[in-house]
Computed example of a mutant assay.
Amino acid sequence: MSDIETSTVSEEGFTSTSQVGEFELTIDALGEDGPDPNSVLVADYASCFLPAFRVGGRQTGNDDLGRVQIDAEATLDDDDDLTSISFDIHVEADVDDDTLADIVERAEGICHVHSALREGLHADVTAHGDAF
């Protein structure tokens, strides 16, 4: 028995619609009718990393990080394959650099997408406290 089941359909062209539970996600390889697959992967990675970052914060005694924002960037090679991803994390709370580094390290161990990606594609993460 599987833990995750999705269904993805393309009637024509390069746009597909994925059913994930009760949610529907439109992805377009050309980026015209929805985000392209690489963009979705980067956004998914950031969406997984952010709550993992909050858990890492709690584990270090920083229960209230306030607003947390991840600005993600990625580069592609000539074949449109992802070659690098970076996260610039902005944290509302005034957290020192050593604590932020500890939280990032913990988040890397918690984030399931981070664990699923090949090591060479793990995000290069920079975190900033007192950012808002």
Results as ranks from 00 to 15, higher is better:
residue 55 V to I: 09
residue 105 E to Q: 14
residue 80 D to C: 12
residue 61 G to Q: 14
residue 37 P to F: 12
residue 114 H to L: 05
residue 26 T to L: 10
residue 71 D to R: 06
residue 47 S to F: 02
residue 48 C to A: 05
residue 41 L to T: 03
residue 9 V to R: 03
residue 4 I to G: 04
residue 68 V to S: 14
residue 64 D to W: 00
residue 74 A to R: 05
residue 113 V to Q: 12
residue 81 D to Q: 12
residue 92 E to P: 01
residue 92 E to F: 02
residue 73 E to H: 13
residue 33 D to S: 11
residue 62 N to W: 12
residue 40 V to T: 09
residue 52 A to W: 03
residue 60 T to I: 14
residue 34 G to L: 06
residue 8 T to E: 04
residue 82 L to H: 12
residue 79 D to G: 11
residue 49 F to W: 04
residue 48 C to F: 04
residue 105 E to K: 11
residue 93 A to Y: 04
residue 34 G to H: 07
residue 68 V to A: 15
residue 44 D to S: 13
residue 23 F to P: 00
residue 14 F to A: 06
residue 98 D to W: 04
residue 27 I to R: 05
residue 108 E to F: 14
residue 36 D to H: 06
residue 19 Q to I: 07
residue 85 I to T: 08
residue 60 T to V: 15
residue 96 D to G: 14
residue 104 V to P: 04
residue 80 D to L: 14
residue 96 D to F: 15
residue 78 D to A: 09
residue 9 V to N: 10
residue 17 T to W: 07
residue 120 G to R: 08
residue 26 T to E: 08
residue 57 G to C: 06
residue 7 S to V: 09
residue 64 D to L: 00
residue 31 G to A: 02
residue 80 D to V: 09
residue 126 T to R: 09
residue 61 G to F: 15
residue 126 T to M: 12
residue 108 E to D: 13
residue 108 E to C: 12
residue 33 D to C: 02
residue 102 D to M: 05
residue 104 V to D: 06
residue 128 H to I: 11
residue 83 T to N: 05
residue 21 G to A: 10
residue 110 I to G: 07
residue 92 E to H: 02
residue 118 R to M: 12
residue 57 G to A: 07
residue 65 L to Y: 12
residue 45 Y to P: 01
residue 104 V to R: 01
residue 49 F to I: 00
residue 100 L to D: 01
residue 116 A to N: 10
residue 36 D to A: 04
residue 105 E to S: 14
residue 85 I to P: 01
residue 69 Q to E: 15
residue 22 E to V: 10
residue 114 H to Q: 05
residue 103 I to G: 03
residue 2 S to V: 10
residue 47 S to Y: 07
residue 118 R to S: 13
residue 102 D to S: 02
residue 61 G to P: 13
residue 76 L to H: 13
residue 47 S to M: 05
residue 18 S to P: 04
residue 73 E to V: 07
residue 88 D to G: 08
residue 125 V to S: 03
residue 112 H to L: 11
residue 75 T to R: 14
residue 23 F to V: 09
residue 116 A to D: 15
residue 35 P to H: 08
residue 79 D to F: 15
residue 92 E to D: 01
residue 72 A to Q: 08
residue 126 T to I: 11
residue 25 L to V: 05
residue 5 E to G: 14
residue 37 P to V: 00
residue 47 S to H: 03
residue 10 S to W: 13
residue 53 F to M: 03
residue 91 V to R: 03
residue 129 G to E: 10
residue 76 L to Y: 15
residue 74 A to V: 08
residue 18 S to T: 06
residue 12 E to P: 00
residue 98 D to H: 02
residue 65 L to P: 01
residue 94 D to F: 00
residue 68 V to P: 09
residue 95 V to T: 07
residue 16 S to I: 11
residue 43 A to E: 11
residue 70 I to P: 02
residue 63 D to W: 13
residue 36 D to W: 05
residue 64 D to R: 01
residue 63 D to V: 07
residue 68 V to M: 15
residue 28 D to A: 02
residue 85 I to D: 07
residue 116 A to P: 05
residue 32 E to I: 08
residue 4 I to T: 03
residue 39 S to T: 12
residue 4 I to C: 07
residue 45 Y to S: 04
residue 75 T to H: 15
residue 107 A to I: 03
residue 86 S to T: 04
residue 89 I to L: 06
residue 93 A to Q: 02
residue 81 D to S: 11
residue 55 V to M: 08
residue 123 A to H: 01
residue 109 G to M: 02
residue 29 A to M: 06
